[in-house]
Design a protein around this nucleic acid. Structure first.
Lengths: 230, 230
DNA sequence: TAACCTTAGTGTAAAAAATACACAATAGGC
DNA sequence: GCCTATTGTGTATTTTTTACACTAAGGTTA
């Protein structure tokens, strides 16, 4: 079946930059290996063509599931890339999204266009197809800015986490150390964490208190001109 | 001439939200009145279809010039809108940009698809075509956030300005008052303003010192981990 | 079972930044 | 020369940020 238009149109795609934290606490990105040309066999961001009458985020969510079997993430729009030479098949505009997930929740499973799908550490990414290397760089920049102003970091952790885990998360993403006491003081003063009646288990040292992010409380606070600003 | 593709493609457009400050110091938006359907006669953002092998920002710049005769602005990507029902002609994805200009520099001149083009005060916008009302709202939100972290406010003022003008600008955009002495202290301490050997003229009161934004100095500072953060 | 290793958990003092606030100086108009 | 309007300036108070070190408690091991 062919499709005919009066004027030429660029193709429209979506791509997803999904970040995660691994057991060793390094920042990871979810990539797929391309099954088809162009860039066959090379690693790339999960993504693909937007279908007729499909919303952008919907397309991103669908492609992510199709190619990696990951679902349920909160996708945020990053930027749109439209350099005419960014795809050898011709003028293609891609809308990039980013999302945060915690690695333990997902069993990655390659499918459709993807030969393989897996997490890669940010520090040692392979060479990426198209301009995906640039997109990942932009995503990490945006993440660094956003994580300081919105409580999105929690999405990288299990539901129940310790303050040390949270601190390490911020240290990894922002690539700078925080003082333990000051960090805890600040976070607790925000009053958006629920202190659970539960502790770590099976650790060869004093067990840490577990906390949970209180989204409801955060939402309420939002309205009263309160700033997260870490 | 017709264009044939194997798969259907959404149309791709760009739209520009250009902000300006008028003589009475209210925030204004540059709009055009549509000459053609859909939404014929209604006010809309300047913008239009991306041409083959045209970069997105290039397209935005071209459409802005064609429809309003405004050139030379620094365009920043805002967001991309792709709800399938946002354009009655069919699935259309639009990449929105925003920019700041000072009204005195430009002679607005309607052209091509635009029947008329002029500044409208933010407070009293007409009903806009497509989802342009939403786009303008998103643009002002983004502007409010960005202006606090990057020295983009200066683009709304003439090259030479007084500290009072600058303060009023921030008060208008952020919709909150600043203390005169504290504002001046803070701005001057940033050390990114050049104090000119020149004063206001023809004012019926003590003439104010004129200043100029020192972009070079700001760029240098940037590298040394310096934050604008107003 | 006691010593050991490792990480959790906690408070205070000093420095820096943000805020609140009022009056003399000066340009042009009358 | 006096009036009006706006500029330009300093200090004291409060709040926020920073720097910093030791005891508590789980699990491991000798």
């Amino acid at each position: 079946m062919v499709h005919i238009y009066d004027y030429p149109r660029p193709a429209v795609t979506v791509d997803c930059v999904v970040f995660g934290l691994d057991q060793t606490h390094y920042l990871q990105v979810l990539l797929i290996q391309r099954r088809l040309p162009p860039f066959k066999g090379q690693w790339a961001l999960p993504g693909g063509f937007v279908r007729p009458n499909e919303a952008l985020e919907e397309a991103a969510r669908r492609e992510l599931q199709e190619e990696t079997d990951v679902t349920g993430l909160c996708l945020e729009q990053l930027q749109t890339y439209g350099q005419p030479d960014r795809d050898p098949r011709g003028h293609t505009v891609t809308v990039a999204f980013y999302a945060l997930g915690n690695l333990w929740d997902y069993h990655i499973k390659a499918a459709t266009d993807a030969k393989e799908a897996r997490w890669w550490p940010m520090k040692h990414l392979p060479e990426l197809a198209f301009d995906h290397g640039l997109i990942v760089q932009d995503a990490i920049s945006t993440l660094r800015i956003t994580i300081r102003h919105k409580p999105i970091g929690f999405e990288l952790l299990p539901t129940k986490f310790t303050l040390t885990q949270l601190q390490r998360l911020y240290e990894i993403v922002l690539a700078r150390p925080f003082d333990k006491r000051n960090f805890r003081k600040k976070l607790l003063k925000l009053d958006i964490l629920i202190s659970l009646d539960e502790k770590e288990t099976n650790v060869p040292h004093r067990a840490a208190q577990l906390y949970q992010f209180d989204r409801t409380k955060y939402m309420e606070r939002q309205k009263t001109g309160f700033n997260f600003d870490l």
